[in-house]
Write a protein that binds this DNA or RNA. Structure first.
Lengths: 239, 239
DNA sequence: CTGATGACCAGAATAGCATTTCAGTCATCA
DNA sequence: TGATGACTGAAATGCTATTCTGGTCATCAG
């Protein structure tokens, strides 16, 4: 059907992931079959299993690849302007970039229509865990540079930060129809909330951000690599 | 089976609601039948329908009655100490008292095991809506008395407050098992978060609370009556 | 006459079974 | 040597017969 084309290992993985993503969004997790994905990607079914151990891992990879793209966009903003490493800015971007990507939006809003069975699959966990939000190390860098409220320790956020973000991602279907803000407005509200709740009352001097940014960015880059590895299977570093 | 006893209309409603609540918690919404509830309450099946229009309304009444009890506890604390009307204290009590009551906990944590079908029933809405949390009027009283951060208008909380509370109620199953705080600790975190995010930086003088408390309490009393009426059917004011 | 009841009914839920679908494997091939 | 797709069993689905149960209302007890 699709004519075979000479491709690298990673290009082929991308074609398969593209097919999986498109079918996922069109039909939902339950209805998509490996046969159809392989057909669409122009490869044999066995080939899919040369990249990922199972169907579950394949769909995790679909999410992981979008996570890589999302983190890339967020980190790019931080490189442009070190002030964007502030927790409230980070989470604002995180929220906007996640909601702008259909697969990630489905995951974070726990969209049962799209994900059905995948919601309760253990493979989904790493995509929704607190680590993807803001790891201890990232928060440690903020704390060390006076970018968190005095007396607030990174571990104090282990519970609260995921709770808040989960709330903003998931509240919509529970709200009466009268309340509907734009995505931007919601992102601004998260940012405002987090800034007042967790950051110093008076904005820290720019120097602090400039000092902290490289370390903060390095941490996110490392996380990004973790997700990239997950997306393309262990074979990503063979190349 | 249960010997009939002379009772007022409301006593009988309570017996039926008791039976419904016990069976709900033991078996979950789907498995409980009206026949079993009536048998347990020692009344005929038809009698149940003299109180509520439908099965759905009956279970809504079970929740509404617990909401009355919960609001009663919260308001009692406010009568003892006017400072408890502060948004963060209100929500702290709300969280603790809701989580301490099995039916409300099931509703607010969206426990699919207990509620299954009831989760998507429209009758559940009024129990989970923003209004039960903190109505515009309540927030208006706080704002009028300088108990909200300068520049924060009550309607600014329409989205954010439900999002945050929903997050705290629902996050637990999504967190890695390492993170498990006591109920008290979680309540303290909600309170801290809300105080920093939405209330004045320096604690307002007591006089403000003393002035505002009667009006705040009156609003909650009115909401409580609404739920009481819903719990016992329209017949509650016949008496 | 009034308020309570439970036999009754239609539609929905369930159980049981026959059939189809599909994730994952591996012998074969280019 | 890397890619394939025919093959297999387990799980999902469709179908039918049967049971269950929400809600009604004719009847009855006090």
């Amino acid at each position: 059907m699709t004519e075979p084309q000479p491709t690298s290992h990673i290009d082929r993985a991308d074609r398969i992931l593209d097919a999986a993503r498109d079918l996922l969004l069109r039909w939902g997790y339950r209805r998509v079959t490996i046969d159809e994905i392989a057909r669409r990607a122009g490869v044999g079914k066995g080939t899919v299993y040369l990249h990922w151990r199972s169907r579950e891992q394949l769909f995790f990879a679909v999410g992981a690849r979008e996570a890589v793209a999302m983190l890339g966009a967020v980190v790019a903003a931080m490189r442009d302007d070190p002030r964007q490493i502030a927790l409230h800015q980070y989470m604002r971007h995180f929220f906007l970039e996640a909601m702008a990507r259909p697969v990630l939006r489905a995951i974070f809003t726990r969209d049962a229509e799209v994900l059905d069975r995948f919601l309760s699959s253990p493979a989904r966990r790493p995509l929704q865990s607190g680590k993807l939000l803001a790891s201890r190390e990232y928060l440690g860098v903020l704390a060390d540079n006076g970018l968190l409220r005095a007396g607030l320790r990174p571990e104090d956020l282990d519970y609260t930060l995921p709770a808040v973000m989960f709330g903003f991602f998931g509240i919509d279907p529970l709200l009466p129809s009268g309340v509907d803000l734009t995505l931007q407005a919601k992102a601004d509200q998260v940012a405002d909330l987090l800034r007042h709740a967790f950051e110093p009352a008076k904005p820290p001097p720019s120097a602090r951000f400039i000092t902290a940014a490289p370390r903060a960015i390095a941490i996110l880059d490392r996380h990004t690599d973790d997700y990239r590895r997950a997306a393309y299977g262990a074979s990503v570093d063979e190349r």
